[in-house]
């Protein structure tokens, strides 16, 4: 079983409570997922292989990728890979992410970021909103890198 959902969500409009009411199932990459409930939410480590999750794409509604440290950028590439492989569901970055990384998360294909309430105290909503304008000044878009 994955972590609960007591975190604060950050979206382009600012902070909000988590609206996901279902359980999170921890993805291990190995076990049989035939028992997975339909439209489930997956908790995924940033070391997971995106290809392995492809068969489940139609059955899951949300993938939450863990960011154990703001210095570890693997989650960004994993999100990008999932999107390029065709995942269209909700994609969430959760853990130690700085307001300054919000743009990176959005451009990598995440829809939202989840942070702990105590972290949100220090990194105020205002600081996240300052970076919410993630579509502007995007060199990769100008170079034709598809979102």
């Amino acid at each position: 079983m994955g972590r609960g959902n007591s975190g604060i969500l950050v979206r382009d409009t600012g902070f909000r409570d988590d609206d996901w009411r279902g359980e999170f199932v921890q993805w291990s990459g190995e076990e049989d997922h035939s028992a997975l409930p339909d439209l489930a939410a997956l908790d995924v480590e940033n070391t997971a292989s995106a290809e392995d999750i492809v068969p489940l794409f139609e059955r899951i509604a949300l993938i939450r990728i863990a960011f154990p440290s703001h210095m570890d950028g693997r989650g960004f590439s994993l999100a990008r890979h999932l999107r390029l492989l065709g995942y269209r569901g909700r994609l969430r970055a959760a853990g130690h992410i700085l307001a300054d990384q919000y743009t990176m998360a959005r451009r990598s294909g995440f829809d939202e970021v989840e942070i702990d309430p105590d972290f949100a105290e220090r990194q105020s909503e205002e600081q996240w909103l300052f970076r919410a304008d993630w579509r502007t000044h995007d060199y990769q878009e100008r170079l034709g890198r598809r979102q």
Partner: peptide
């Protein structure tokens, strides 16, 4: 230009 602010590669 490509590497500037590249969203995936700021925390290699």
């Amino acid at each position: 230009q490509w590497s500037t602010d590249h969203p995936e590669f700021a925390f290699l």
